[in-house]
Design a protein around this nucleic acid. Structure first.
Length: 303
DNA sequence: AGATACCCCTGTTAGC
DNA sequence: TGCTAACAGGGGTATC
């Protein structure tokens, strides 16, 4: 499940590849749902990329895009829950679940794979960011793909407005975890890093978002950011085989996870068995001792 | 208008 | 053993 650290790992991978500043062509794929948001499907994609070259790779939250040389458009990717961006030899055999192939002139091929097809690819035009700051990591331009204006900045983004995020966060009777997953408030967080951040901050996932004061909110963001930075050092989390980096290698952070996927196992802090509940339709693993539902005694300190 | 339910999709796994 | 059903997940959309 690619969240911010996994998408950022892939973005950094791409920077080391010979996919920039050179012409490319698209291989003809079978009709695929990953182009469902692309106007006119594959033909539209091809038309949008005529004589284009990639200049840089940019990320905001879980969204990744490749800006195009001298054009006000970008090739945009969302990996959904099983999307992969692989770089392989230009004549490499089709990969499993391959959906789209971009073959670089005198270079490798960039391949989009997706088993469950929650991911998507499309060309979008660029529009100005609402705050006037650079759109995301990897770009110094205040230009964002059309349709991503509702995606907030992420916790690793220096231009994230924490006060504004807090106002949105608390203006709701929904659970803390639900609001953490809301990409319009803070982007990049999925179920893994939400559970990990909540555990580290000692916050019960089902607690209402409005019950957090700004100090606790900031502490939560701090923990989420810290887990993400550490996960980035490990090349991301490969909880199953669905996430690999651009070279096809898994990330090593799964062994560092403290609660996600560990229901029934001992809490790494107090050694009570970890519990599971459904919050906003998503299963959440937590510790009843360290993340007390009453929020009566917030926990402090490191494991 | 905000919150919720549902749907998309497929591979793995738990359970009968 | 073999089959079925549940589950996982992001996010768009329909619905209350």
């Amino acid at each position: 499940m690619p969240e911010l650290p996994e998408v950022e790992t892939i973005r950094r991978n791409l920077l080391d590849q010979e996919i920039f500043h050179r012409p490319f062509e698209l291989s003809t794929p079978k009709p695929t749902r990953v182009l469902r948001y692309q106007e006119d499907g594959f033909q539209g994609l091809r038309r949008g990329l005529v004589s284009a070259r990639f200049t840089n790779a940019v990320r905001r939250g879980k969204n990744l895009w490749l800006n195009l040389d001298g054009q006000d458009r970008a090739l945009c990717f969302h990996l959904g829950m099983s999307g992969q961006l692989r770089v392989v030899g230009r004549k490499a055999d089709p990969l499993r679940h391959e959906r789209l192939r971009i073959i670089m002139e005198d270079g490798p091929a960039l391949v989009f794979c997706d088993q469950r097809m929650f991911g998507h690819v499309e060309v979008r035009s660029l529009v100005a960011t609402s705050d006037g700051f650079p759109a995301g990591l990897g770009s110094d331009q205040a230009l964002l793909p059309l349709g991503l204006q509702h995606i907030a900045r992420d916790v690793l983004d220096p231009y994230l407005d924490r006060e504004a995020a807090f106002r949105k966060f608390r203006a709701s009777s929904q659970a803390v975890k639900t609001k953490l997953l809301d990409q319009g408030i803070i982007s990049g967080i999925g179920s893994i890093y939400a559970d990990e951040g909540l555990f580290r901050a000692g916050i019960f996932p089902g607690r209402t978002a409005k019950s957090l004061d700004f100090t606790r909110f900031e502490a939560l963001l701090q923990e989420v950011g810290e887990v993400m930075r550490r996960a980035l050092d490990f090349g991301g989390t490969s909880f199953d085989t669905l996430y690999v980096n651009s070279w096809g290698n898994p990330g090593a952070f799964a062994q560092e996870l403290q609660v996600y996927g560990r229901c029934g196992q001992d809490c790494p802090r107090c050694h009570a068995p970890l519990d599971k509940m459904v919050v906003g339709g998503r299963s959440s693993v937590f510790c009843r001792n360290c993340q007390p539902p009453t929020a009566a005694s917030p926990r402090k300190g490191k494991p």
